[in-house]
Design a binder for these strands. Structure first.
Length: 268
DNA sequence: GTCCATGTTCTTTA
DNA sequence: CTAAAGAACATGGA
């Protein structure tokens, strides 16, 4: 579920509950979700204090101790929550960390497309990821898009081009920028790239303001669902009338992913 | 039983 | 060789 706005919302709700806390007993249910898999997570983290929490693309970076970090990627169905140790532990809870006041940090991920990382030193900052979209310059975006002949929808999902955009917000940004999703990335005009950059920033910012989109699984660190799904203009709205021109929205598959667009507003 | 799902990575093809 | 397309991963809901 989690794209940049959802991950950002988790980070913001996690911060006041976690920063400054000492990590106590750690329970890792399975080590095949951890990188490096031979890392002794309890030995590395128990007794360490949480320094700060940040987001890089769709990854959550929890900095602990002097210069170590725990990374969490929510994949498709991941949840990272702080709850009472008395709360029922749902199936597929792969990690729990005891905190003060009978609270626990829990990571649950049924589909296991998510994962955990432990870094000692600056490894967390050396992720092979493209630039953050909020604050991205149009010239930088244009340069990256000019290097690929893939269709723009697929290029936007490439995390090395822009970090954090996923299937929902790619469709929403292309609709707002009035760009057909099958336009080759390297054939976009300068004004189209400008409009796209603006649309990406606008839709991500608005989604953050509404605490992300909840389609099924997503909740923030407090267990609350997001509200932006009510404001989606094209995503999962095939056959519904376009909010701008009333034409029936269409769905097609690009790069194996559902793509939603208005055939009239987003003309090639 | 079928199809679909907010993501990434490995393999195959061109 | 490289870029792009496709399959795979694992689970659950409609």
């Amino acid at each position: 579920m989690p794209e940049l706005p959802e991950v950002e919302t988790v980070v913001r709700t996690l911060r006041p509950r976690l920063v400054g806390q000492i990590l106590q007993k750690i329970n890792l249910g399975r080590s095949d979700i951890l990188t490096p898999s031979d890392c002794d997570l309890p030995a590395s983290l128990e007794g360490q204090r949480v320094r700060s929490i940040e987001r890089r693309g769709k990854k959550i970076i929890i900095r602990v101790g002097i210069d170590a970090a725990l990374g969490v990627h929510l994949g498709m169905t991941g949840r990272l929550t702080v709850e009472s140790e008395d709360a029922p532990k749902l199936p597929h809870t792969h990690l729990s960390i005891d905190l003060a006041k009978q609270q626990q940090l829990r990571f649950r991920d049924p589909r296991r497309f998510g994962g955990l990382w432990y870094w000692k030193g600056k490894g967390w900052a050396e992720e092979n990821m493209g630039p953050e979209p909020l604050g991205l310059r149009t010239t930088t975006l244009a340069k990256a898009l000019g290097r690929t002949r893939r269709v723009i929808k697929t290029a936007l999902l490439d995390q090395s081009i822009v970090a954090g955009v996923g299937n929902i917000y790619a469709d929403e940004a292309l609709f707002r920028a009035r760009i057909h999703p099958e336009t080759p990335a390297n054939e976009l005009s300068t004004s189209q790239v400008t409009a796209l950059n603006k649309a990406i920033k606008q839709v991500l910012t608005r989604a953050i303001n509404h605490r992300g989109s909840t389609l099924r699984d997503y909740v923030d660190a407090e267990g609350s669902a997001g509200g932006f799904q009510k404001l989606h203009q094209v995503y999962a709205r095939a056959n519904e009338p376009c909010v701008r021109c009333k034409t029936a929205l269409q769905r097609l598959v690009l790069g194996g992913r559902s793509t939603h667009f208005c055939p009239k507003c987003q003309h090639r």
